[in-house]
Design a protein around this nucleic acid. Structure first.
Lengths: 335, 335
DNA sequence: AATTGGCACTCATCACACAAGAGTGCCAAG
DNA sequence: CTTGGCACTCTTGTGTGATGAGTGCCAATT
């Protein structure tokens, strides 16, 4: 391999470890490239010309640029498999989860512990999942509660107001019909299914049915991607200073931002890394984001990832993100 | 009023405003007590003797001690009512919430915005609420989903494994019986109700019923107080430095800690303020915590509050906490 | 007895200079 | 192409002195 890439690797590794700009001397000493510091310096000058590294000031060493990290990730790094101990720990930790919420919180916590970065985990979206059951519960004369249970175990509830004088039988009929029509159907198909069924079934044209199916649609469509968990924000204090921290924390608390962040990654690519300015969200342009899609029964259902310093340990963290994604898939399948 | 208390008030107010130790001169100028700086100095010396204020070093002004804030809160401060504009904003913001989750997130965000501190809001606990409806949904031959809907609108779900060969009628019977027994009953009473009913109703002694009622109990008891939302962590950067921030963020992410924090306050007192070392949780001993209980139909259901710098604006924040508590009560009632 | 102006004293903060050291770039030699 | 040598740059740490904020105490005043 080109020695200059080895030098880049050494700089990235050393900088990730120490957090300080790295000079030619330490590279020659610690990374046994078999050449003198002077030679390293030549290589460094050329790497700097290419924009892969930069010097904060004359008398300091070099640090990688965003482009430098990019090159490292694309051409140099290899995803380091997790140790057996780590795998066991993951398995035990996720295995003792009792329900969906528990799986999700544990996953999030796990990911932040493994990576020492901020973990961001999206709840399984309803869109690509199927409907397991619809329930209508009579609260009062004029109020029903609609409960929608997804194949992922997620439950959505919503109160609907109806006009008085509807009998329980009417409601039971409606419930049965809705289950008949929608059970095991893909969430994204449900609006169409409902509108077609309206032609055929008279029951669905009543005022009550209209209100209910509207609520059902909104539960299925609108609130599909809303929930995101995060953990490990305290890890930010290691890298950031107080001024840069505040906007970051704000952004991370804002579900909208996180969903935008996760929404922007494609489902196709296995693992996606956005480094510094590559990131489309301005608040996160000083950070790197490693994300991936996780699946249930091979169908992509949501995304997860980490947000952290641009000088994170990419090799370890990329491995952690994909490992956690595959574990969550497994546990969701079982649940 | 004792002039020395006026001096204490001036010191607290000035320090909250500026964040800097306050000297005798500024007090004499800005707070028009009608006396000279020298007099103020005498008062300050005596306040220092009593342990209400302290000087970081010789040539600096004074800052209030925890005890000083305590005295301020108990003897001097008056809860400042919110402005009409604020009230309108709250009403509009909370009023457009669509469901329980929405009410809770909005409340949390609102509280942090109003106070510029970290807001902590507990979901309505199931313990003091009543059960609206139990549902059993057949997933597979050997799996049921138990859905419990609380009067607060909160939904708990749980999957239970049963042995094969149970008919739908059996399950419907069980469901009806459970609803008959438990509907509109207080959550905390349900375990007893179930165990008593077992004597009378044979249905409840089947293996399936045992498993289901066990799950119902655990949904009602164990997971009652689990969820807490927080917002506004970025406000911490204004007061804390990087070293003190990390453990704080960690503590705030840990639901267990937050629940302990909220659990420790009594339901009796309207508004509780814990200042610095008064706080039983060691990580929070550099912060102040203002909490209160909120109610649904006059029954206390959960707690909310703020965690922030000891030199926060107590008057404004205490008002905000109690106002938000009363608003959330109102909106939960309506929902 | 309380209040006040005066004044000496303390100590954090700032600016500046200066030394030390890290790291570089370049050059000439191998 | 690599290497040792060396002058150069610039950050970082340290020490010194000036500045000024704020105090405590005292004697005088009300």
């Amino acid at each position: 391999m080109d020695r200059r890439l080895s030098v880049l690797r050494a700089i990235v590794e050393e900088f990730v470890r120490s957090g300080e700009p790295v000079g030619s001397k330490v590279i020659a000493q610690k990374h046994s490239l078999g050449v003198s510091p002077a030679t390293i310096r030549n290589d460094m000058a050329s790497l700097e010309d290419e924009g892969l590294i930069t010097a904060p000031h004359t008398s300091a060493g070099r640090i990688p640029t965003d482009l430098g990290y990019r090159t490292f990730v694309d051409k140099i790094s290899s995803v380091k498999p997790l140790s057996v101990a780590e795998r066991n720990a993951i398995e035990q930790f996720l295995g003792s989860a009792v329900d969906l919420d528990d799986i999700m919180t544990r996953t999030t916590k796990l990911l932040s512990t493994l990576t020492h970065q901020v973990a961001v985990v999206q709840y399984p979206t309803l869109q690509r999942t199927t409907l397991r059951h619809v329930d209508l519960i009579v609260l009062t004369d004029t109020r029903l509660m609609l409960v929608v249970i997804a194949s992922t175990g997620r439950v959505e509830q919503q109160v609907v107001e109806i006009s008085a004088g509807i009998t329980r039988t009417d409601i039971d009929d409606l419930k049965q019909l809705l289950n008949l029509l929608c059970a095991n159907k893909n969430f994204s198909d449900i609006p169409e299914i409902l509108s077609r069924a309206k032609v055929e079934h008279e029951v669905l044209r009543s005022q009550t049915a209209e209100v209910v199916s509207k609520a059902l649609e909104s539960a299925v469509v609108e609130r599909g991607e809303e929930r995101v968990l995060i953990a490990g924000t305290s890890n930010l204090t290691k890298f950031e200073n107080l001024n840069t921290l505040a906007p970051l924390l704000e952004a991370l608390e804002e579900n909208v931002v996180l969903l935008k962040l996760l929404g922007e990654i494609s489902t196709a690519e296995a693992l996606q890394v956005r480094i510094g300015k590559e990131n489309p969200i301005s608040t996160l342009q000083e950070t790197s984001v490693v994300t991936t899609t996780y699946r249930v029964s091979d169908v992509p259902v949501a995304k997860l990832g980490i947000v952290g310093s641009t000088h994170m340990d990419y090799e370890v963290n990329m491995a952690a993100v994909s490992a956690v994604a595959s574990y969550i898939s497994r546990f969701l399948q079982e649940a």
